[in-house]
Amino acid sequence: MDASEAMRVNRALNKMSKLYRAVKARKLAELGLHPGQDVLLWLLAQEREGMTVSELAARIGIEPPTATRSLARLENSGWFRREAVATDRRQVRIVVTDAGHELVPAIERVWAELAEQTMGGTSDEQREIVLAALEQANDRLRGDVGEAVLAEE
């Protein structure tokens, strides 16, 4: 790849990342969420019995202190509750409340709207080519990082 093509790729990916995050932030703000909190809450809602902070952090691909800080920012939302883990008093299980479960369809709607806004107007074939290229790029970059990072955030 020559320098001008590399510059074009870098510019396009940087711009896409910034624009995608900005639009996502606006859409999530209407729900009272910030980017990243949507993924956290959605993942928690998939486990009816909840998850420990360590389990959640591992699932997202972040450190437990980062998950703890994210949860602290959501603490007063009423979307989850903390329950003691009977077998380990040092651990707490994060369990999504009914209010949190009611928010999940709105989160999924934001994701669908954002995907449509981003990819709308492309043919099925173009969309498949773009998605395959992005997934391959993610796999190569993930290999360099050495982490199992969750898609979205």
Rank of each mutant, 00 (worst) to 15 (best):
N14S: 14
K15P: 02
M16F: 15
L19C: 08
L19D: 15
Y20M: 12
A22F: 09
A25I: 02
R26F: 04
R26L: 09
K27P: 03
K27S: 15
L28D: 00
A29S: 06
A29V: 00
L33A: 03
H34K: 14
H34L: 11
P35A: 05
D38A: 07
V39N: 09
L40G: 00
L41D: 08
L41P: 00
L41R: 03
A45N: 08
Q46T: 07
E47S: 12
R48Q: 13
E49P: 04
G50W: 02
M51Y: 01
M51L: 14
T52H: 08
V53M: 10
V53E: 11
V53I: 15
A57Q: 06
A58D: 15
G61D: 09
G61I: 03
P64H: 08
P64D: 02
P65G: 05
P65C: 07
T66R: 14
T68V: 04
S70N: 06
L71M: 08
L71R: 04
L71N: 04
A72H: 14
A72K: 13
N76R: 15
N76T: 07
S77H: 09
S77W: 09
G78A: 06
W79A: 03
F80Y: 15
R82F: 13
R82Y: 11
A84V: 11
A84M: 07
A86V: 11
D88H: 01
